[in-house]
Amino acid sequence: MAYFLQQLINGVTLGSIYGLIAIGYTMVYGIVGMINFAHGDVFMVGAFIALIAFLALTAIGITAVPLALLLVLIIAMILTAVWGWTVERVAYRPLRESFRLAPLITAIGMSIVLQNFIQIAQGARVKPLQPVVTGGYELFQQGSFSVIVSNIQILIVTTTVLVMGGFWLLINRTALGRSQRACEQDRLMAALSGVDVDRTISLTFVLGAGLAAVAGLLYLLYYGVIDFFIGFVVGIKAFTAAVFGGIGSIPGAMLGGLIIGLIETFWSAYFTIEYKDVAAFSMLAIVLIFFPTGLLGRPEVEKV
C-alpha cells in the first residue's frame, strides 16, 4: 500500500510534465491539423535555456532559490516561445495550405535541426545540475518503507496546476482563446470574420512552446540531468499522451499525460524498468483500438 502510494506520487509528477508538453501537441493539432514533430525538441531547447539561465544567474550572484527559479522560468518561457515562433514561421507557415505530408516532413527536419544544433552548440555530453530544490515530507511509514513526497514533486505539481489554470483562463476567457477555437472550427470562415489567422496560429505555437519551457525547467529540476536527445523520447511519450487523451482536446492532453506517467511509473515499479516504454506504447495501441479517437476526442463522423 505504501509502495503503491509512493508510485502514485511519482507517477503524477511525471504525468504533469508529460501533460504540459502534450498540450503543445494537441493545440497545434487542433488548430492546424498537423503533428508538430519538433515540439519535443522545443521542450529540449527549453530545458537547455533553463539550465543556462540558471547557471548565468548563479554566476552573477542571484542565488536565492525562489527568485532564481522565478527568473529562470520567465526567461525560459520567453526565449523558448521565440524558438516555437521561429519554427512555425520557417518550416510550417510556407506550407500552410499545402499537402498533408509536407509539413510532417519539415517538422521531422526541424526536429533533426534542433537536436543537432544543440549538440553542436552545447556538446553531446549529459549536463548535470546540482539539486536545487531539496528536502521533502515523510507522509507516513509502513514497516521500513516510508512514503515521501519531496519538495520538488510538490513544486512540479503546483506549478503545473497553476500554469494549467492560467492557461485554461487564457483559452476560455480571452479573445485569443476565442480566435483559436474559431480557427479550429473553420479557418476560412474565421479569416472572413476578421480573425487574424496567421497571428492566432503563431500565438498557438508560442503558447505551446511556453508550456514546453515550463516542462523543460521542471524536468531539469526533477532529474537534474539533461542532454540534447531528451526531446525525442519525452516528446514521443507526450505525443502518445495527447493521442491517448484524444488529440485536439486540451483536458484530454492533461489526462493522457497523467495516464502515461502512471503507466510508466507503475510498470517500472512492479515489472521491468526496461519495458516501461513498451507498456506505454502498447497501452496506446490497445486504447486506440477500442476508442479510435482517444479517450476524450470528438468521434470523427464519416460524412457520406
Binding site: 505525443f239 516504454d277 513498451v278
Partner: peptide, 26 residues
C-alpha cells in the same frame, strides 16, 4: 491498427517501431 485513420495510424506505427527496437535492445 489498420482501422485507425490518419495521424492515429502514424503514431501507432511509430510506437510499434519503438517497441520492436526496445525488445531487440532488452
Amino acid at each position: 491498427v489498420l482501422r485507425l485513420r490518419g495521424d492515429y495510424l502514424a503514431i501507432v506505427t511509430l510506437a510499434f517501431g519503438e517497441i520492436v527496437r526496445i525488445i531487440l535492445l532488452n
